[in-house]
Design a protein around this nucleic acid. Sequence first.
DNA 1: TTGTAGGCGTTATCAA
DNA 2: TTGATAACGCCTACAA
Lengths: 360, 360
Amino acid sequence: MSPRQNNRQKAGKAASIYDVARESGVSVFTVSAVVNNKSHVGKKLRERVEEAIRKLKYRPNLIARSLAKQRTHTIGMIVPDIANPFFPMVVRGAEDAAQKHGYNLLLCNSDDSLDKEEQAIEVLLSKRVDGILLTKAAEDFRPPLRQMIKEAGVPFVLVMRTYPKLTKDAVITDDYQGAYDAVCHLARAGRRRIGLISGPLKVSNAMARWQGFHDALKAKGLPFEKELMVEGDYRIESGFRAGHALLSHRPDGVYVANHLMTVGLLRAAEEMGLTCPDDFGLVSFDDYPWLGVFRPKLTTVELPKHQLGSEAAELLIARMSGSRQKAVVRKLQPELRIRESCGFALHVSKAQAEERSANN
Amino acid sequence: MSPRQNNRQKAGKAASIYDVARESGVSVFTVSAVVNNKSHVGKKLRERVEEAIRKLKYRPNLIARSLAKQRTHTIGMIVPDIANPFFPMVVRGAEDAAQKHGYNLLLCNSDDSLDKEEQAIEVLLSKRVDGILLTKAAEDFRPPLRQMIKEAGVPFVLVMRTYPKLTKDAVITDDYQGAYDAVCHLARAGRRRIGLISGPLKVSNAMARWQGFHDALKAKGLPFEKELMVEGDYRIESGFRAGHALLSHRPDGVYVANHLMTVGLLRAAEEMGLTCPDDFGLVSFDDYPWLGVFRPKLTTVELPKHQLGSEAAELLIARMSGSRQKAVVRKLQPELRIRESCGFALHVSKAQAEERSANN
DNA sequence: TTGTAGGCGTTATCAA
DNA sequence: TTGATAACGCCTACAA
């Protein structure tokens, strides 16, 4: 007789599989089989067990199950900052996909700090998540961490930012193309001295956006003036400072690598008495539903945020299930949403006006 | 000899406490004591154990610990939708507080649906979270769920929305006051026919905001016209529909109960060729950093989102630690941020103009 | 088909 | 101070 068979059920203690077994006069094996509706349990027994489950209000303890099965059905997700409006939709995408497959999300914020990121990874590994979705912070992992991750054998999928030293599995956006399109649009709208407020160049997507910017300039035969490029950190404050620095050189177009820095830029512009799109055309990254109702109506490069999260989660889940194919880099296409901040309408109407006056 | 003492360490399997014990020639008890730097372990032994830990790269398995200690150091958090810009900062606040106390956040979205909410609660309970932060969906729990929650003995703290049938512990904002202030400000700006786009009245804060609206109208001696009140669901689409319905009656002021519906309203206004603040004054809830740089510059009632989350988490953690004081309802104060959408400046300058013309 | 008993990795109780 | 050893609750060979 197992030592467990003694009386439980007293004191709020939740019923265990043993209690159910005793109540229904079967073995724990049978109960377990019923709970996981496994193979063929005799109809009679099954009913008796189910009856007992209801009676005792039995609820399987997933912690115990996790320990036994060595799988937690939990995914760790590390983002720089959930309060950055870019990430909520990504997280939502991941959660939707996770949920669909019976997984939950353990959410951590790194603030783009190596220390916090490392801490988060350690705790996630200790909590034995089945996999991790990571938007890598700017700097390199310290070697011991990388070693530990490797040994833990927990799959990672990178989100938004690549970091091949860890894994090649990643779901990102075509940032080069997005930036390229943005700058071309600015040029099309007649802007000639185009500036850039970039993300931290140690981050893969910031680098890609910078390259797209650069190549578009070249393709359009526009000059690259190095005072017209400022590196920020994707936060408002840095956009504000960058805006002051940049606008003091009076560019007639600006491409900003994310929304938060755009907010900072507009703050600076206002302080300097400059308005958009009259004094400078503007295209930025990340679109949001509310950008369509406020002026200046921002022309943006939208990234498929939800899809980014959901595809990353799907890929991770595939990896966790042991799919051993070679690394996948999924690159999603951005979409240029033309509104008014680039001054395209302005430019066009100006051109028309000139045309008209020429005709008269 | 315990059956566990046989060879492990092969196949990527992580080292367990047994491996460390064997390696350092002590008992698991001692290792455990060292890991949790408990009481007095002989200095020599401690060093030997630490050595072994380093050598084997031992990392405690928190799942096993959770099972043994019956505590997971994990908090479940259920929000309607993390993609609603209101919640990210609340979640961030909760995560910050949780993190500070050594807890993690398991995040779920309910979409304000009873089914999803119930599902989320069940899985969180099964995963044995130590407590749950809940922004209650609109409808009532089904009785069995409430029963189960009670029996689970897991503390809940409500966030943003009260629901006394579950618990009185809650961290909310003074929504009545916020709405009251908003409407008074509209009145002060000379608006007389003030409309309301409300949240779902089954949600506690929507009800409170509606009452604040109503009482402010009365206090200002303004009429309540029932065509000027429309109930939405806090989403953009409902704000859009409500906007069409409402604006067709040409109110000169509108108070909207959250930001997303404001976006919808502005969309509708644009379709109808109405502009804010010229055709109608506007005050809405929730403030965001970017609202200060776009026009119309929204006058809003800001709610301390981060604090909401962090205080809720703190309270929950206190409860989980068995603090048995009576229920706490913490009500945080909102803050009216006056910008331009209410048309106050407009009104004032108009008044000045009249004054001037009267003086001539 | 069903039962028995050992294992998952920790903590905790009781002796020694 | 340390060490055995029984929980914790579930899964799962291996037997029957």
